[in-house]
Computed example of a mutant assay.
Amino acid sequence: MKTTEITIEVEPSTAELYLSAPEQQKRQLNLLLSLYIQDAIASARPLKEVIRQASTEAQANGLTPEILDELLRDE
């Protein structure tokens, strides 16, 4: 899959977590963010629905609820 690097602003603690995450988690988070951004901007659907669908797809690609909870809890 071809990708393009972009820059987004996040809280310093979020940046530290991301930078210290294993490469597999980074790939999973990149996929999750890509899905959120693509669906949120390209879709006329409510953001809540977009997040729900992206979450389902992320789980199908290996980002488990436990990993996501752990990442969110560390913030």
Results as ranks from 00 to 15, higher is better:
residue 10 V to C: 03
residue 71 L to K: 01
residue 44 A to F: 12
residue 20 S to C: 02
residue 48 K to C: 08
residue 63 L to Q: 06
residue 31 L to G: 10
residue 19 L to K: 02
residue 70 E to S: 09
residue 11 E to P: 03
residue 35 L to A: 08
residue 49 E to Y: 09
residue 70 E to Y: 02
residue 21 A to K: 00
residue 39 D to S: 12
residue 33 L to A: 08
residue 67 I to V: 12
residue 43 S to W: 12
residue 50 V to S: 15
residue 51 I to T: 14
residue 32 L to D: 00
residue 55 S to L: 12
residue 31 L to A: 04
residue 34 S to N: 14
residue 48 K to T: 12
residue 3 T to H: 08
residue 21 A to H: 06
residue 55 S to P: 03
residue 34 S to Q: 07
residue 64 T to V: 02
residue 33 L to G: 13
residue 1 M to C: 06
residue 11 E to S: 03
residue 2 K to F: 10
residue 61 N to V: 03
residue 14 T to K: 03
residue 45 R to F: 08
residue 55 S to A: 11
residue 36 Y to P: 05
residue 73 R to V: 04
residue 42 A to T: 13
residue 43 S to D: 10
residue 35 L to V: 03
residue 68 L to T: 06
residue 39 D to G: 15
residue 29 L to S: 05
residue 73 R to N: 14
residue 19 L to S: 06
residue 67 I to T: 10
residue 54 A to G: 15
residue 74 D to M: 07
residue 15 A to H: 04
residue 68 L to W: 08
residue 59 Q to D: 09
residue 19 L to A: 05
residue 59 Q to L: 11
residue 8 I to G: 01
residue 32 L to E: 00
residue 57 E to G: 02
residue 5 E to R: 07
residue 39 D to H: 13
residue 45 R to I: 06
residue 72 L to A: 06
residue 1 M to H: 09
residue 58 A to Y: 08
residue 41 I to N: 11
residue 70 E to Q: 11
residue 64 T to A: 05
residue 38 Q to N: 14
residue 55 S to K: 10
residue 47 L to G: 11
residue 72 L to C: 04
residue 43 S to A: 07
residue 30 N to P: 02
residue 32 L to A: 10
residue 62 G to N: 06
residue 24 Q to G: 05
residue 6 I to D: 01
residue 36 Y to M: 14
residue 46 P to N: 13
residue 13 S to L: 02
residue 9 E to V: 09
residue 35 L to M: 13
residue 19 L to F: 05
residue 74 D to H: 07
residue 55 S to M: 12
residue 46 P to I: 07
residue 32 L to Y: 13
residue 43 S to M: 05
residue 50 V to L: 06
residue 9 E to I: 07
residue 69 D to G: 03
residue 56 T to E: 13
residue 73 R to C: 04
residue 19 L to P: 00
residue 15 A to D: 09
residue 54 A to N: 11
residue 31 L to S: 04
residue 9 E to H: 10
residue 16 E to N: 01
residue 37 I to D: 09
residue 63 L to M: 14
residue 36 Y to F: 15
residue 17 L to C: 00
residue 39 D to E: 15
residue 59 Q to G: 05
residue 68 L to P: 01
residue 13 S to Q: 08
residue 60 A to H: 10
residue 62 G to M: 04
residue 20 S to R: 04
residue 71 L to I: 12
residue 72 L to T: 06
residue 1 M to I: 07
residue 40 A to M: 14
residue 40 A to K: 07
residue 54 A to T: 11
residue 38 Q to S: 14
residue 54 A to F: 09
residue 48 K to M: 12
residue 71 L to T: 07
residue 6 I to E: 01
residue 65 P to T: 04
